[in-house]
Amino acid sequence: MALEISSTVHGSVAVIELSGELDAGVAQRLRDETVAMAGHDGVRTVVFDMSELTFMASAGLRVLVFAKQKLGQGVELVIAGAQPAVAETIELTGFHHSVDMVETYDLDALGNA
């Protein structure tokens, strides 16, 4: 199944909803989308909603590395709702030390953080 990306900005929070499978063939699209969303004025948090993401290769992890290095300290990355297999990859590679992992997110709480 192809990757679908749907993004919205809510004040200081950008939400990128991912659905389908994230592999090396489509990672560039997510990279571009992440940069575009983080570039909105005043965005300080980017939430990757992975609740509908059924597969993530290391190319997805590299998007997170890229985002963290490109966006710097000013933008927090949050991964929401990762399914167990995807969460296992994130934890096995130690990414959960650098990215907040939450089951669900509250836009108001994130926006006021």
Binding site: A57, S58, L61, R62, L64, V65, F66, K68, Q69, G72, T89, L92, T93, G94, F95, H97, S98, V99
Partner: peptide
Amino acid sequence: EPDDLGTPLEERAVGGLGVFL
């Protein structure tokens, strides 16, 4: 094997993760 799995992403190299997994 990558030796920086405990390193913050800001300081990470990006190679080797696929073979590790």
